[in-house]
Design a protein around this nucleic acid. Sequence first.
RNA 1: GCCCAGAUGGCGGAAUUGGUAGACGCGCUAGACUCAAAAUCUGGUUCUCGCAAGGGAGUGCAGGUUCGAUUCCUGUUCUGGGCACCA
Length: 932
Amino acid sequence: MEYNFRDIEKKWQKQWNEQKAYSVSNNSEKPKFYVLDMFPYPSGAGLHVGHPLGYIASDIFARFKRLKGYNVLHPMGYDAFGLPAEQYAIEHGIHPAVSTAQNINNFRSQLDKIGFCFDWERQVNTSEPSYYKWTQWIFLQLFNSFYNRQTNKAENMSVLVQSFEKEGTQVHACPGDSSIQFTADEWKGYSEKQQQDVLMNYRLAYCGYGEVNWCEALGTVLANDEVINGVSERGGYPVVKKKLRQWYLRITEYADRLLEGLERIEFSEAMKEMQSNWIGKSYGAEITFDIADTSSKLTVYTTRPDTIFGVDFMVVAPEHELIEGITTAAQKAAVEEYVTYVKSRSDRERQAEKKITGCFTGAYAVNPFNGKKIPVWISEYVLAGYGTGAIMAVPCGDERDFKFAKHFNIPVTNIIGAAFNGEEANPTKDATLENSDFLNGEVMRDAMTIASTKLEEMGIGKRKVNFRMRDAAFSRQRYWGEPFPIKWENGIAYPLSENELPLELPHIEKYGPGPEGEGPLANVPAWTAKHLETNTMPGYAGSSWYFLRYMDPHNEAAFCDRKISDYWGQVDLYIGGTEHAVGHLLYSRMWTKALYDLGHIGHDEPYKKLVNQGMIQGSSRFVYRLRTTSEFVSGDLINELVYNNPKEYNLPYSIEDVDRLHVDVSFVDGLEMNVDAFKNWKPEYEQAKFVLNANGKYICGSETEKMSKRYFNVVNPDDLVNKYGADTFRMYEMFLGPVEQSKPWDTKGIEGVHRFLKKLWRLFYDEVKGQIWKEEKATDAELKVLHKTIKKIEDDTERFSFNTAVSAFMVCVNELSDLKCHKREVLESLLIMLVPYAPHICEELWHALGNTSLVLNAAYPRFEEKYVTESAKDYPVSINGKLRTNINIALDASQDQVEAIVLANDIVKKWIEDKPVKKFVFVKGKMINVVV
RNA sequence: GCCCAGAUGGCGGAAUUGGUAGACGCGCUAGACUCAAAAUCUGGUUCUCGCAAGGGAGUGCAGGUUCGAUUCCUGUUCUGGGCACCA
């Protein structure tokens, strides 16, 4: 009997399905374990081999925990709202709901083939009204809450209103606009509109104004990645910044708790660092400078108040409101021109710009301590959104300021003496200050406090904690997203009541933008007649809480029953890509904290542990066409053109005449192309001619790049599952390398894993003899192999080192084959260990052995030390750090005994010659090093 | 530009706490079985000098710490990811 994976996999997938083997209960005596994948956006391109990498890893872990006796929640769903479906609708007229449903079906059938243990009864789809009803509900919770800085948590707006009625803004300073201050009486005298405008500045979900990428020609707002070099990706039309009404989440109020929470969760250090850099907490001071000859004042934020005497110029963001008022007549034209230039550029372009640009406003600020006049410049490297949108530039201590000063010939003041060499800035905090009036002689680190105190005493500055993070923009001028449950009347936003939810997306035929940059919903008369909000929520709305819905997916009375969320609690293991480092992972942490504050759930961090899977890149293949012909030259001949003198090879063309074209990887074996398949690929290649190499082969060029349809380097998991089976595919994906690491896909090695499974099969079945397993007692040698493997697989699985676990299975099967071990006692344990990795073959063999229950529910084999203990070790012996020989020595030998044995060894003697032994290093159980 | 990560044979990778660099697999290669092929099995395979025994070099690059460094430190190059409306 041979290993017929196709029948086996089909059979068990059907049986598991029928027996509801993956159904998970919310009631269990067992300890719980929650394994979650970042759910996919169901794109039209379907799954490629990169997607399942994380899913296989989590599936292995979930199954492993199940065998270890846990009640494991391992769900899957779809992040189904998003821009690509809407774009597809614009281009092809297919409604996003239709294309999304198709894509989901496609994803599902692809996922099913791989044999995951998802409980599909719990599937969520963020674009379904039954789901987004609760996204809208949570939005209303945020809308109806403010962040109480006294109690340090989100609370209902009614608490705030009561406080206003009693004591005005005395207790709760306004987070949105510090100029808002009033007494209780003033509050009571406000109109409803005035009151609501005030409250909007407190709400956790609030409406404000923000800049977007506006493309006049397309009449629409564009995403950052739809804008390339200041023009639209589609059509190449100019894009400018435009202020539009937007919804925001007041995530900045949670900045400190988001930082603090990082200490309580197991994310990689890199991930934590990325998040804390994003939050960007800094301590510094705001300093207000007078502008000479005007009544204007300029406030800057600096983290280095100690360098106040080294300020040689000010830099103000080009958007800064002060510019218009302080620019002198002489500089007006230049400033206007510069501002227009900057308007066309994205934040990222502005920061990445190596060219130093800027413009003098003609105005001067006055140093409050020494009266020195400081020129005020504008430059794109200062961003309006950070700090006060203005900086004081200290060229001797800041590299960018220094370069700016050099470029515009601004004289540089040295305040740190010899620590500044005049060639480059020195950002030290440990130099002693000079040229600094009352700070002279102070070490900079200490001077920071002295300067801040003085500034506060003089009333021209104050200490300030600043965050780089901004409030999260939470609206899109698009169709395919959750509608806001908000109605506008007389400029006041009124929330819909709970029983009006879900507010369903209306069906539309045209997906074009609405007037004045509004979204497509503005074109729907029935919608606008009810004065409903025309923006929709962004992609991350639904994904900010989906891990809660999986726990209780069919609940119609609540987003998730509190008892059930208390049972499942945090996600124990979350697997997904680093690309979500600062987006989804921060937003969902914030939502969780808000829901916790409001008493809806019992934990305030969603994910206990996060594992980042690497990206699988594509390996592209190229053909080389002689320009304007249908003649294709083998790649190795092209390489000779590049690296050698073409004349030597007497080739009738030069490298400049060759076009490099992507070719579909499916008809290339390694680098060798199937020329017939290529000819049949596209009609234009039917008449293709080939210049083959000396062996008569066409060799392709190759490069590693993103796996993408347009590069023809996409490898579809379906094909591999068909050819080798799901078990092979699963194990091969893991065998490629560490899950966390990015690596190019190469199908070549999959045969090796497939061979392993066949070899495993042959421990049970012989081609001729059929069943060959035996009931005999296992030998010590066999038990040693088994228990060594149990330990290794357990350790490796626990630390997510799935690639080394696969190799440990290979080693085990190789060794059992060498020992001709066919004993049930050993083989059964091996099967249970292998279930998480290759469930189908294990279930088949498990039943072949006569078991009637599912191996999925078996108990994990117990490791026993006694089978693997050794009494001696082959010690590596080095002389002066160079390995010279191995000597077998008992593990319980003492240092003296070891020294005697080693020094008596002939090879050791030879290398020591007659030199005296300086040092004898002996690390028990590890190695020996003799230093002479 | 800023933040984060990575770099080891022909290839994917292993070396878990500073202790035998290259486990396991692919590829290549020699052999067994076969009329032949496939499948399977056995051996070899970092580079280099050498008939061999054996020696030398070697983990992106340049330094450093250490009896000992792929592992720690400093600098540097290249590659990948993120940078707020892709998800």
